[in-house]
Simulated scan of single mutants.
Amino acid sequence: MDSTTATAELGWTIYPSQGWEEVSGYDEHMNTIRTYQVCNVFDNSQNNWIRTRYIHRRGAQRIHVQMKFSVRDCSSIPNVPGSCKETFNLYYFESDSDVATKVFPPWMENPWVKVDTIAADESFSQVELGGRIMKINSEVRSFGPVSRKGFYLAFQDYGACMSVIAVKVFYRKCPRVIQNGAVFHETLSGAESTSLVAARGVCVPNGEEVDVPIKLYCNGDGEWMVPIGRCMCKAGYEALENGTVCQACVSGFFKAAQGDDKCLQCPINSRTISDGATNCICRNGYYRADSDPPQMPCTSM
């Protein structure tokens, strides 16, 4: 989910009605976006919530949330009471379907799960030409494991003068890659930031595993690491394009063993056999002892 792509009202649920307000605003590049703002700093005991629409999980086990927001410096507001805050809370609630209403889930921690209290690195206080000079903060938080089909996010204000400018929800995955002679398909990262998810590789055509089953591990940042094992081209094939292709040796060239890297030219007075480029046989009238290696030239009697 990316709130900055919305072309109409986001339509998130607000509680209570006199709390958050959805308005049109601008991002740091002066693009028009929909934002939510609240500034009930002169009233004590604030408990204002906004809840996103239902977000499908798409198989992800760990969810990341990037929030861009601005917060007014409490000390810059004249006569503000001591209840003024410069932080807000992030929550999530899992569900297998879009079941939320204006009263469910209840607007409180438990059943909502708190992710973190979010503080601004910079708050704004200057006012020029009748307008605010905002300092936009960007914070990323993650949570998991998640197991239901989807979830909601909620933002709780308890006495700040602030604006939620943009919210992006995403997960990380390791992309499809060909490495060590094998294809590894797209793999989602694990439930924890430190998780390593094992993925089995499939040898490229005309390749085969050597030593141990080939694996890679997908880490929490969506990066492949810890390669184990490898695939090598079969006899009669050589590795090309950085090991992503096993190509048959052309006529007059051979590769006898799996472990050889490149096709070799048949020695003088020999040619590749008709059923594959795994060896070279002597031409008529030329000979080589059975114990001679395939790269040994053939000689006449």
Rank of each mutant, 00 (worst) to 15 (best):
G25L: 04
E9K: 15
H56R: 15
F88I: 02
K255Q: 10
M225H: 09
N31L: 06
E109P: 04
P293L: 09
G19M: 05
M30R: 15
F253W: 12
D96E: 13
T13A: 10
K135G: 02
T5H: 12
Q156W: 04
N44Y: 14
G25C: 08
V167K: 00
P205G: 06
T32N: 11
N79Y: 12
G59H: 11
V177Y: 08
V226L: 13
A160I: 01
G207N: 08
S70H: 02
H64Y: 15
N284W: 07
S97I: 03
G150Q: 07
Y36T: 05
Q258G: 03
C74I: 03
Y171V: 00
R53G: 15
K135W: 03
I165R: 09
M1D: 09
F253A: 09
C218L: 06
C231Q: 06
E109D: 10
C231L: 06
T32D: 05
V65L: 07
G144Q: 06
N279C: 03
A235Y: 03
R141P: 00
T4M: 07
W20E: 01
C84E: 03
S138W: 02
D98K: 14
D275Q: 13
T278P: 01
T187K: 10
P111F: 05
D211I: 09
K168D: 07
G243C: 08
V113I: 14
D292H: 11
V99E: 13
K262F: 11
S125C: 09
V204I: 15
V210A: 05
L216P: 01
G19R: 08
E139D: 06
G82Y: 10
M1A: 10
S76Y: 08
P81L: 07
D116I: 05
S83E: 11
S123V: 14
Q46Y: 04
V41I: 15
G276V: 03
N89G: 01
K102N: 14
G130N: 14
L188S: 10
Y171S: 15
C266Q: 06
M225A: 05
H185I: 05
E128S: 14
D2A: 08
Q18L: 06
I214A: 02
N206H: 15
T7A: 10
G19L: 04
T244F: 04
I133K: 15
V113N: 13
R271E: 13
V127K: 14
M67Y: 00
V71L: 07
I118F: 08
R288H: 06
N31D: 12
W12N: 01
Q156C: 01
R200M: 08
R200C: 02
Q258S: 09
N284F: 06
C74Q: 06
N242G: 08
V202R: 15
Q295G: 05
H29M: 09
P105M: 07
E28A: 13
W224A: 06
Y15A: 12
V146T: 11
M232D: 05
C266A: 07
R200Y: 12
C84Y: 02
H56F: 07
E94Q: 14
L153T: 02
V23R: 15
F170A: 02
V204G: 01
E128G: 09
N180L: 10
I178M: 10
R200T: 10
S83D: 09
V183A: 03
T5Y: 09
L264P: 00
E122S: 14
P145V: 03
